[in-house]
């Protein structure tokens, strides 16, 4: 009982530090979102105040909606991200199944071959990628982006999924085989449903760098009709540097979808990181 005051003081100190860093992490984003709903005068006069009845204004959003095709950019980002994730998961799971389920010559070599892709960033092959896309006429198409991101995400997906494939019980698979199921049916009907949680983790992880990437959209698909939201926001904001309302509104629009997804999935994401690290 004597220790109580000391313990309480320690607890207060810990929460003060954590609370202070919470402000550091959140405040910058909060400031942008808050000010995007204010008129120009109060953005500058009282940047730290939340919008109230007299300072509320949607003028920034009106400009953004008139000038930029944010809905189109958003759609492009969605197509590219969903398309890439689909192929990463499908091809990644198939390869992981083959590598862990069967013994064959070249098995270890293939693992090492894929390991190269985990360590070396795909960006370094940009010169070669652009040359190839130009030859095959895929420049300024979303297909080019989906292909590149699939290649980028595959190595890690194969590694993570292999870990989980190893834990699927042999009895389950063999029971299926005795029932006369083909290897394909065993994989799609029996194994895939069991590793679904691992696939969700891989999906969330691969999604962030794809959605946020600026490099490949800038190089492979910079045309107006194929801009992703990351590139679209970058170009739009570059053009409207002096229109603070529009810039703040554009930023808020590009932050919001990510924030919503994050709040929805943060538990799974954090569990994914911490579980992977414990291994």
């Amino acid at each position: 009982m004597k220790q109580a005051p000391i313990l309480r003081m320690r607890r207060v100190a810990v929460h003060t530090v954590l609370g202070a860093y919470t402000l550091v992490a959140i405040l910058p984003v909060l400031l942008i979102i808050m000010n995007s709903f204010k008129d120009r005068k109060s953005i500058f006069a009282q940047p730290l105040m939340p919008p109230d009845a007299s300072s509320f204004s949607l003028i920034g959003y009106e400009t953004v909606m008139r000038q930029g095709d944010f809905l189109g950019y958003f759609q492009n980002s969605l197509i590219v991200t969903v398309g890439s994730i689909f192929f990463i998961l499908l091809f990644g799971a198939m390869a992981a199944f083959a590598l862990t389920e069967y013994r064959f010559r070249g098995n270890i070599f293939l693992f090492l071959f894929l390991a190269l892709g985990v360590m070396v960033p795909i960006r370094l092959g940009t010169v070669g990628i652009l040359e190839m896309m130009a030859k095959s006429g895929l420049v300024n198409t979303l297909t080019a982006l989906i292909l590149v991101y699939t290649a980028q995400g595959l190595p890690l997906a194969v590694f993570v999924l292999s870990e989980f494939m190893r834990t699927v019980s042999d009895d389950l698979k063999n029971a299926g085989r005795i029932d006369g199921l083909s290897e394909y049916v065993v994989f799609f009907r029996l194994v895939l449903p069991v590793v679904r949680p691992a696939m969700a983790t891989v999906a969330i992880f691969s999604m962030i760098p794809i959605w946020n990437d600026l490099w490949f959209p800038l190089i492979l698909a910079p045309s107006e009709s194929t801009k992703t939201i990351t590139l679209g926001a970058q170009v739009f904001i570059g053009q409207f540097v002096t229109n603070w309302n529009a810039v703040l509104a554009a930023l808020t629009l590009s932050i919001t979808p990510v924030l919503i997804l994050y709040v929805l999935f943060s538990r799974q994401l954090i569990r994914g990181i911490t579980a992977g690290a414990v291994k």
Binding site: F91, M94, L116, V120, I122, G125, T126, G128, E131, E183
Partner: peptide
């Protein structure tokens, strides 16, 4: 081969070959 082909194809064509080409 069927299970491995799509992943190896995409990975080689868009990662390894461009890297070697670079």
């Amino acid at each position: 081969a069927v299970f491995l082909a799509p992943a190896l194809l995409v990975y080689s064509a868009l990662m390894i070959i461009p890297l070697a080409e670079t």
